[in-house]
Design a protein around this nucleic acid. Structure first.
Lengths: 139, 139
DNA sequence: CAGTATCCCTCATGATACTG
DNA sequence: CAGTATCATGAGGGATACTG
């Protein structure tokens, strides 16, 4: 009799992995920049600071909730600055920090690979799908 | 009377954005590599091909479902190869394609930025949290 | 203007059980 | 060994309404 079943061992491994991934810098960065709105916001701010309402127009389709939530996270991470100008009505400007700017080349590297190899990926997908279809006809 | 309300316009914009993002190469790549298991699998295969059962051990914590699902997607995208050796029992080897290998430097760039700037991010978070706490005490 | 608060619902993931 | 099929759940995201 083993003290733990295979299922329990796998579950333990998963918990350990989650803990590891929670602290892994690369993992955390990937989680951030892969967020639907993060890349769009960083891109929008790359050309210069913008107000909250400007961003909601530039990045059309984003809900107020997600815009605020995403900006807060980026601010907390030190990637964007939030500048409040007390007035009536209040004015808030968002802009990239030097840290945020330093991330742009990485985003660009991702974009470059994607655009360079998109054709190859598309071809691979087509060929894969064709084979799957062919096999289905034989069954 | 306008023909569309602000809510309708935002919804339309969201649909349009989703359609755009579905075709945007950089967006699609980000979606792939940000997948929890993709980066781990690519890393595991970077050192050479592995069998299905090897991968499930190397990448401990992954369920059969996600392992298979992720490998299928990577195969379809042309990033990994799947080689079946008919025998009893059957043997299946997975390995990186040249396309898959070409992606490794990009992953490395992400990892490098993360590890280089993790301290700055952590410091920013600490400072942010401290300010939030201070403000809560004043309310 | 720049948010906050709430409800709701979908979708991705994981556990479990079964198979050629 | 290398999967497939089915079910359950929970966290993320959107719509809506309200506020200093």
């Amino acid at each position: 009799m083993t003290t733990r079943t295979a299922a329990q061992r796998r579950q333990d491994a998963r918990v350990a992995y989650d803990a590891y991934l929670a602290t892994c810098p690369a993992r955390r960065l990937l989680d951030r920049i892969s967020d639907k709105w993060v890349s769009l916001l960083l891109n929008a701010l790359a050309d210069g600071p913008q107000r909250y309402s400007d961003l909601s127009r530039t990045v059309a389709g984003v809900s107020q909730k997600m815009l605020t939530q995403t900006l807060r996270t980026l601010e907390r991470d030190g990637l964007v600055t939030r500048t409040v100008t007390p007035a009536v009505p209040v004015r808030v400007d968002y802009g990239l920090t030097p840290l945020g700017v330093s991330l742009l080349p990485v985003m660009r590297a991702i974009k470059d690979w994607a655009e360079t190899h998109i054709e190859e990926v598309a071809a691979a997908q087509e060929s894969y799908d064709a084979q799957v279809n062919a096999q289905e006809r034989h069954s």
